[in-house]
Nucleic acid binder design. Structure first.
Lengths: 348, 348
DNA sequence: TGCTCGTGCTGATTCGATTCAGCATATGTT
DNA sequence: AACATATGCTGAATCGAATCAGCACGAGCA
């Protein structure tokens, strides 16, 4: 666009009256070890500033074989806050180490996924964050196996790729705790069991919930299955209530389900918190419902940040293959929990 | 990671028994104009496939000064579907021309914005999509003025950068039309006027709404101001209803406002559609409310795609500076509308 | 005076693909 | 047979920064 050729390192060197080599050392902060004198150092820096020098990363990348760029492969970027919250966390973490993010949305299409991965590898990304919308097990494409990769919100049982997962088990136990604290240990029903193959969050949340209730001498009274959305939940619970049962609490597997439950209760002139409702996600929706919904946040932004840190951290550092992001609501918690890794491995 | 050095063009050339030059021509689809024989062409392609050759884009970029990569600068990526829907549209459009997206979230911080733009320019992006969460006027950073840039959801009155904006005027008129079709031309109130400086959508929606009602011989009865969120809208409308007025319809400036209105109506035992409610955004929320909310979708994905097309389209093509994305709900519409550009210029 | 050693800087090469200019060899023309 | 033309390919330069190996110069020392 601008008619003037872009400013190169040589331009800076010429203006400062030194060689490109010297300019390179100085601008890369290697003055000290290269014994560059202070006056020269300053001359070069001034020249760079005056010319508005911006290094050409393509050239640098060619030479150093690094791009300080990370690829993010995700099945869905747009759907809800999950993916984008993760992206925000990852993006912020990337910034700490001057990395930029390159994104690719696969829409669940394996061919597209391969193409996007190829494009990223051609562009020499330094690593790839492989994320999924729902917590589940996956089989990552072959091409990724010999790359630097961290999985987010999913695990690949067939590989030893490091993964970051939310601590759904603890989240489930927190839900139980909320019920117990409200004096409710019986007639608690879960809403939204999902039998999707490979899905993990529902099963883990339920397991944590069961464990937490039993810990307090209670038990989960039952599970009302339905898809994780408002209308299916409303219909399922509405019908379930027709049977005349009188629940004391509902634990909804996400906030949209909870909204459906609110509606179903309202239809029968039942009110929250006469019937207690607890849910998972901590989305905005929870603050919009009346009365406000108690919801357990899944820290997607933390997960993104954690994954990014693992990805850019110096190689060889001792580290777990499985990182489990904590759930913020869990504070000052005592007592033991069935081993998380064991719980996971039972499921996969 | 893999101990084997990456496969280069020369490796392919050697295996096929030709020069790197020839291999380059063939793999870039220039066999015909370079008069490469079919057997040679095939030998090279086979060699590339067998070795799993992946061109090094850094090298290509250095030589050609293009990266087939587009930067997206956005104030917020995570907040709601707006930004991410735009991103999805842009991403899909980018794929058509084999471009990849590099993202940067500025969080509304000007210094961070400049840094991200710098990082992107260093990485030689071929163009930049500059997007905002809310439709408003902006002043883009100096550094962008001599780059290939398209604005999305905002305009910069101080520059002649091309922009893609939603057709909020038409959207407002559509809202009016929905009311009129329901037989309502009086006692219609708008909810959510916002006086944020630089904001455009509210004012344009209102203008279109007024125009549409007057067109049908009616008029907008009034405006209830409040922030564009559930609780403020609920409170504002709840209080407004206390005054004993009996509205026939509410036009809410977004879906969250509409949810607040539903709640306020419900408190006073008023029911939709006895009081008609129309809203803007077409978010999932609209389908969750009971009864389903009539909402006018803003096509953020289309806007992203449109902007991306403008960005990668061959230079010099005749084109408007101001592209206005259509609102999908507007179909087979007759009649004229006050000039959009004029309406915009009145506001900026 | 001759020697080593530290200081401050530079020339030349490299990364991998693109691309201009051109070189053999075969084919056709008169 | 002499010459033009087409065919099929290649050598070398290039993009811009990073980096290895080393050079000139002066100080310090015997």
């Amino acid at each position: 666009m601008s008619r003037r050729r872009r400013v190169t390192l040589t331009d800076v060197a010429v203006r400062a009256g030194v060689s490109a080599t010297t300019a390179s050392y100085i601008l890369n902060g290697r003055s000290a070890q290269m014994r560059i004198s202070t006056p020269t150092d300053e001359r070069v820096r001034n020249a760079a500033a005056e010319l508005g020098y911006r290094p050409n990363r393509s050239a640098r990348s060619l030479r150093t074989a690094t791009t300080t760029t990370i690829g993010v492969i995700s099945d869905f970027v747009a759907s809800g806050h999950y993916a984008s919250q993760m992206l925000t966390g990852a993006s912020a973490a990337a910034r700490e180490s001057d990395h930029l993010l390159m994104i690719g949305e696969t829409e669940g299409d394996a061919a597209l996924e391969e193409r996007l991965i190829d494009e990223m590898l051609e562009r020499q990304v330094d690593g790839i964050l492989y994320a999924t919308l729902t917590t589940r097990q996956v089989t990552v494409p072959q091409a990724l196996l010999q790359q630097r990769v961290v999985l987010v919100n999913c695990i690949d049982p067939g590989s030893d790729l490091p993964a970051v997962l939310p601590d759904e088990l603890q989240a489930g136990r927190t839900a139980a705790r909320l019920m117990v604290d409200a004096g409710i240990t019986s007639e608690v029903y879960a809403v939204g069991e999902d039998p999707t193959p490979g899905a993990l969050s529902g099963a883990l949340r339920l397991e944590g919930l069961r464990y937490g209730l039993e810990e307090a001498g209670g038990a989960l009274a039952g599970v009302i299955p339905c898809d994780w959305d408002v209308v299916p939940a409303r219909d399922a619970v509405s019908q379930w209530l027709c049977s005349g049962r009188m629940p004391r609490g509902f634990v909804c597997l996400n906030d949209r389900v909870a909204m459906g439950v609110y509606q179903a209760l309202s239809e029968r002139r039942l009110h929250v918190p006469d019937v207690a409702v607890v849910s998972f996600d901590g989305s905005d929706l929870a603050t919009w419902l009346q009365p406000r919904l108690t919801s357990i946040a899944v820290p997607y932004d933390e997960m993104g940040a954690l994954a990014m840190h693992r990805l850019v951290e110096p190689e060889g550092a001792a580290r777990d293959l499985l990182a489990v992001a904590t759930v913020p609501m869990v504070v000052g918690w005592g007592g033991s929990l069935p081993d998380r890794r064991a719980a996971l491995s039972r499921l996969v």
